[in-house]
Computed example of a mutant assay.
Amino acid sequence: MTHPPEKDFPWWLVVVVAAGLLLFWQVLSSPVYLEVLRKLSAGIGITILVAVVAYGSACLLGLGLALMGLSRSAVLRQVARTYVEVMRGVPIIVLLLYVAFVLAPALVEGWNAVTGLLGLDPVRPRDFSLLWRAVIALTLAYSAFLAEIFRAGLLSVERGQVEAAMALGMSGWQRFRLVTFPQAFRVIFPALGNDFVAMVKDSSLVSVLGVTDVTQLGKVTAAGNFRYFETYNVVALIYLTMTIGLSLVLRRLEVSLRQRA
């Protein structure tokens, strides 16, 4: 009789923690590593900010797209499907560059056209921060994937429960808030967690725009001290610490949700 996956002893975690502790010891005992860590630590806040804001925005947009995809309106369904297919077909790094250097200037130009009619001062394209251009790009990219996750979760709720809620006189919003979404959320939580971890890693792509996250500071530091081995060891350690720690927290929450079901 096989054991459930949750009962397996996490030997992988033992190996990773052992390797991480060894690397931490090297970092703490080496002036070079400590100097690199000091410089890179300034980018951790930016990395977390980009990941959290972009993922939160992508969840809201993705949920809206999922509801559009399940709408009775054929127009809304087609609009949602078109968006999802287009965004999933464009590499994230290409979308970052497109938003930063095509969409953002176009938005600024449109904004100036409107505000010009109102007699307001124009906005310069450089006033539109590259950080927020990157956040918008990641939001657009991930919202397409999250839309499919939300759609699958909403479809997993049995129709009979929705009909029972209707028989009790619940409004559409009440049915969604009290019946449909809570059940769908328990189903899709693992997938949402995986995408959040992926977002933390993909936030490193904002370095192509010069946003001073951990990866960008790593590139600048390595170019200045030529300590590529030490610098990228620390970069990897920072990301592994964030992603593995986040994965363990999400796994614990997943187990808790299953126990409450």
Rank of each mutant, 00 (worst) to 15 (best):
P5N: 15
P10V: 09
W11T: 12
W12H: 14
V15R: 12
V17I: 12
A18E: 07
L22K: 06
L23G: 06
W25D: 15
S30A: 08
S30F: 09
V32F: 06
L34D: 08
L34M: 14
E35K: 13
V36C: 01
K39R: 15
L40S: 03
I44Y: 00
I44R: 00
G45T: 11
G45F: 07
L49C: 03
A51W: 01
V52W: 00
V52E: 01
A54S: 15
A54K: 01
G56Y: 01
A58Y: 01
L63N: 06
A66S: 14
A66M: 10
M68H: 07
S73W: 07
A74Y: 07
V79R: 11
T82Y: 10
V84W: 02
G89R: 10
L95D: 11
L97T: 13
F101R: 00
V102H: 02
G110H: 10
G110V: 11
N112I: 13
A113F: 10
V114N: 08
T115N: 13
G116C: 07
G119P: 13
L120P: 02
P122T: 02
V123I: 15
R124Y: 08
D127E: 15
L130C: 08
R133P: 03
R133V: 12
A134N: 02
A137M: 10
T139K: 04
T139A: 06
T139Q: 05
L140Y: 04
L140K: 03
Y142L: 14
F145K: 07
L146K: 01
E148R: 12
F150N: 04
G153W: 02
E158G: 15
R159E: 08
G160T: 14
G160R: 11
A165F: 08
M166L: 14
M166T: 10
M166F: 05
A167Y: 03
G169I: 12
W173L: 15
Q174V: 11
F176G: 09
L178S: 12
F185Y: 08
I188V: 13
P190A: 12
L192E: 01
G193D: 02
D195A: 09
F196N: 00
V197S: 06
A198N: 14
V200M: 03
V200D: 00
K201Y: 08
K201L: 13
K201S: 10
S204F: 05
V206K: 12
V206Y: 11
S207K: 08
L209Y: 06
T212P: 14
T215L: 14
Q216M: 15
G218M: 02
G218I: 00
K219W: 05
K219H: 13
A222C: 06
A223T: 08
G224I: 06
T231V: 09
Y232V: 09
V234R: 01
L237H: 04
T241C: 10
I244C: 13
S247E: 09
L248G: 11
L250E: 04
R251H: 09
R252M: 11
S256P: 00
L257S: 05
R258I: 00
R260M: 04
R260E: 05
R260H: 07
